[in-house]
């Protein structure tokens, strides 16, 4: 699968996800036939393009669609949860 196609598939999967943030492993469900290395390439490109973003607790990392779910404003307390 070409990387653009994979990026599209990942974004479709991510937009549809009901969870605000998801583990890297779950993104694999967007293209179960591919290995984690290929998924990583596409995900890294999507982060560079600012379509996905990282969320980290310090010990684990999750990914999210930029601006969806927990946003930095919400974290700052300017948007009360």
């Amino acid at each position: 699968m070409d990387i653009e196609e994979l990026k599209k598939k990942i974004m479709e999967w991510a937009e549809k996800s009901t969870k605000p943030k998801f583990y890297f492993k779950d993104i694999g469900k967007a293209a179960p036939e591919l290995g984690p290395r290929e998924i990583k390439k596409a995900v890294t490109a999507l982060v560079q393009e600012q379509k996905l973003e990282y969320w980290s607790s310090g010990s684990t990392t999750m990914y999210g669609v930029k601006g969806k779910g927990i946003t930095e404003e919400a974290q700052m307390g300017t948007h009360e949860e």
Binding site: V47, Q48, E53, Y54, W55, S56, S57, G58, G64, I70, T71, E72, Q75
Partner: peptide, 9 residues
């Protein structure tokens, strides 16, 4: 718990 900050990339 955690947050979205980081440096680009």
């Amino acid at each position: 718990h955690g947050g979205i900050v980081g440096v680009f990339g």
